[in-house]
Write a protein that binds this DNA or RNA. Structure first.
Lengths: 139, 139
DNA sequence: TATTGTTATACTCTATAACTATA
DNA sequence: TATAGTTATAGAGTATAACAATA
């Protein structure tokens, strides 16, 4: 089911001309700037994919790239005001679409379905942390 | 969150060399053959996208195309035995991945998250039915 | 040498427009 | 005329391999 829901999310984001991967990148920039390698880990894509993804967002003025002063190999990515604004709009469209779909469920079930999605954030964060910093097997 | 979960689903499916859209198509063929236009509606993609998507699956022997005897314009798509087998394997990989992620939630919450996803099927089916056959506005 | 990021290249998914075949 | 499907074409996301710059 997750795959069909994902397609609906993709369609909702298309309303603001954002692809699903672009949206994912923006959400990771919402709270803090990120260097490309970090973003690749966060998004679970290759580094060249991050370059390509960011290219489009930079061209549209949604993201800004800055060379790190501490380590000139690094490129920090930050949301512009326009990027922050579009992200808010995208979030709203996405929520609206999911709520519209959930509304077909009887009574309380719709809210349960929506809340269920929210709880996945915690799981994904924990899973990502474990993936990036795998538990050392005891010898 | 749905978008990050979708990426994890994509990675799980990549283990059996299926893309997320290909998997979606296979799931719609599981119960019955479908003509291309119907698939386009089900998948919420254009008809040319269905052609391209099916091309790859036919080339791999997972799906078979048959001209309809009743209306020679129509092309029915059916799962081959290989297709049915790979779909089962894909389902297993997907479930395993989602369960692994949900396992990072405390106790019962993981099961609630998984069950929440299941309930979306009903909502999506109802939403699709309404989308294809919109309620006539009373004049 | 190792790490960060980009470029080169190729494949898939997607859409729109134009086309063929059939109804 | 209308519908089912494909072909042509173009743009985006993805990966791997090779490269440049910096540490």
């Amino acid at each position: 089911m997750i795959t069909r829901l994902a397609r609906q999310a993709e369609l909702a984001l298309a309303e603001v001309e954002l692809s699903l991967p672009q949206y994912r990148l923006l959400t990771f920039l919402e709270l803090q700037g990120r260097m490309a390698s970090k973003l690749a880990d966060d998004l679970a894509v290759s580094r060249p994919s991050v370059t390509a993804l960011a290219d489009g967002l930079v061209a549209r003025g949604l993201v800004e790239r800055r060379s790190s002063l501490l380590d000139r190999r690094r490129v920090e990515h930050v949301l512009t005001d326009a990027g922050r604004g579009l992200l808010a709009e995208a979030d709203a469209r996405l929520d609206r679409r999911l709520e519209a779909i959930a509304s077909y469920l009887d009574g309380r079930d719709g809210q349960v379905a929506l809340d269920g999605l929210t709880s996945w954030k915690e799981a994904l964060d924990a899973h990502r942390a474990a993936r990036l910093r795998p538990v050392k097997e005891p010898t």
